[in-house]
Amino acid sequence: MLATLVGELLYGVTRFLVGGHSIWRGSQPEARQRIYFANHASHLDTMVVMAALPPRLRATTHPVAAADYWGRGSLRRFIALKVLRATLVERGGSEDPLAPLRATLESGESLVIFPEGTRRNESRPGNFKSGLYWLARDRPELELVPVYLSNLARAFPKGALIPVPITCVAHFGEPLQVEEGEEKDAFLARAHAAVCALAPQELADE
């Protein structure tokens, strides 16, 4: 109850500040099991993707968040676990970091992941880490939906204290799959290109 209220408040503030509406090209907001993978530029990214999903999809979609940041402190834990219902992942831990993600997928629900692993201070996404490939190869029936978040590096750049109101849009693209015998690097390059292809002009200008 409290979590729902706080959630509505956070999504409301996010929309007021940065808009965060969605554009679907090549996929539709359907209730299928998916991994949404997006570029990562700011702490607002998770909020913007979740705000851009219709509520019925949001209810079965879990953003993946770093345990070293979101698992600390009771307020952050409350927001991560109760409000966003995030799946926490250990960065640089010794055991299999993908285990919590696999568990969420096992339960039939969807994930939002940021395959760059960390925020970047520019609009072009950096190289993808391999997690997306391993998850996709294990469960070929999943739809892998590329997402490009525009303007977030300007709305809330790394190192800034507060976000500024610049309109951000979540662009959802056509689903991918790992092809028969496709190598890890080839697939990750293709996934990276699929995210970049959704970017409006801003990448072309650089």
Binding site: G19, N121, N151, A153, R154, P157, K158, G159, A160, V164, P165, I166, T167, D205
Partner: peptide, 13 residues
């Protein structure tokens, strides 16, 4: 209006 103006104006970090 300010949000719309700055959203399509190329500002930097």
């Amino acid at each position: 209006c300010l949000r719309e103006f700055l959203s399509i104006t190329p500002t930097r970090a």
